[in-house]
Design a protein around this nucleic acid. Structure first.
Lengths: 221, 221
DNA sequence: ATAAATTTAGTACAAGTGTCCTATTTTTTT
DNA sequence: AAAAAAATAGGACACTTGTACTAAATTTAT
């Protein structure tokens, strides 16, 4: 099977973006690595922004598919953690978008509005997850007004921030990072779990040894 | 009194950085606005990175002074909120650093290490604050292992992420934004407050009407 | 097979950037 | 007042980037 040039471009571009940052990649750096002419590359994508936008669409698509698959309403805690990890993996695959998000949205304004939609989707997902856990007696009912509204907002911010955070505080890359921050994300719910919720949580950790080991913040934390 | 050219450069540069983003500002855009030659500007700062680094040092200095002032150990909740707001104001003044942080640290590597120190400082501050509240019976003792360790980490991430978040989800600028996110930051502690802690919290809000009104997330949230 | 469409290479151009250098002018020091 | 230092203007240079264009090669359709 022969990969189309267009796909090869996207593949190489994604890697370069992730490794070097959005501002260090140009049509020429990509064309060079692919051994094709810059003119050829411009035939497929007018400029780097066009490539970035396409990569963003790919991200959005992968996210969308993921959400569809996960739609069964009564998930347990172990499943919720897994879903978090899956979502975070997709984000990590396109991490340059998260790292340079502001600079990118300033140039490509469609992206900002489109991204807000994804956020709304994820937010709703989380809210439903919480309500589900409450109805099952795994999470407490909220004991202060707006408590879970706030929790959702805080979670969304952590979900946006973990990749930049990893970039600053870790030298590691890849899986361990994704797992560490998925765990951290879920740990935000722990203080709100009931006894049976906590029991499930600990059991889930025991069943997956790789969820226990994990990284530790180094000198910085 | 005559402002030195060097200070004028920093002033204009800071505004341009905040308004346009780090990648849209060059020695020439700054020189133009100041009606000085590019050569002159390069006499004072070799390049834009040198300006950015100096602005970062200014931020660090302001933060340092703030911490010194605030060092009295027994603050109440109202004071803690005020301190948060003060810290956030300083961050907001230099917000381009937060927005383009990753891209900037990739170019200026000294900055990353230096920044980690600030983080460590703030983290310690928060940890002491929590311990203080616990010892006063305003916060519960932790009822799950590492609970407050996690809380501190989550808070640090929100503290890093609020400015990019504001840029994506709000069109407003300035004070209201700072106040909104300071409130949000503090609201992370609310679920852990005791009854008397909650009472103090609500009283603090009542005493400062401007803390109550606040923004609401618009269509996106 | 032949015409048409797609894909590719190669190159030229204008704009912007950081860097460097020289020549004045202004300020400070002696 | 003379000498030294600091500040400013102006511009040349090399480099990168996105853009645009032409011509050749390849694939696809008829």
């Amino acid at each position: 099977m022969n990969m189309k040039t267009k796909d090869k471009i996207l593949e190489v571009a994604l890697r370069q973006f992730n490794e070097l940052g959005a501002d260090q990649v140009s049509i020429r750096t990509i064309a060079n690595e692919l051994q094709i002419s810059a003119g050829n590359l411009c035939y497929h994508f007018k400029n780097t922004d066009a490539i970035i936008f396409q990569l963003y669409l790919n991200l959005a698509e992968e996210m969308g598919k993921m959400v569809e698959v996960v739609q069964h309403p009564d998930t347990d805690i172990a499943q919720m953690i897994e879903e978090t990890e899956l979502t975070f993996s997709i984000m990590y695959k396109y991490r340059f978008l998260m790292l340079d998000f502001i600079a990118i949205t300033r140039r490509i304004s469609e992206l900002r509005e489109h991204f807000r939609q994804i956020i709304r989707l994820r937010q709703q997902q989380l809210r439903e997850g919480i309500e589900n856990l409450v109805s099952k007696g795994l999470m407490h009912k909220e004991w202060a007004p707006d408590m879970y509204n706030h929790l959702v907002l805080h979670s969304m911010m952590v979900a946006d921030a973990w990749i930049p955070n990893a970039e600053v505080h870790f030298d590691e890359k890849g899986e361990p990072i994704v797992r560490f921050y998925s765990q951290m994300m879920f740990s935000m719910l722990v203080p709100f779990l009931t006894e049976s919720g906590l029991a499930q949580y600990h059991k889930a950790l025991e069943d997956r040894p790789e969820w226990q080991a994990g990284l530790r913040f180094g000198a910085s934390f």
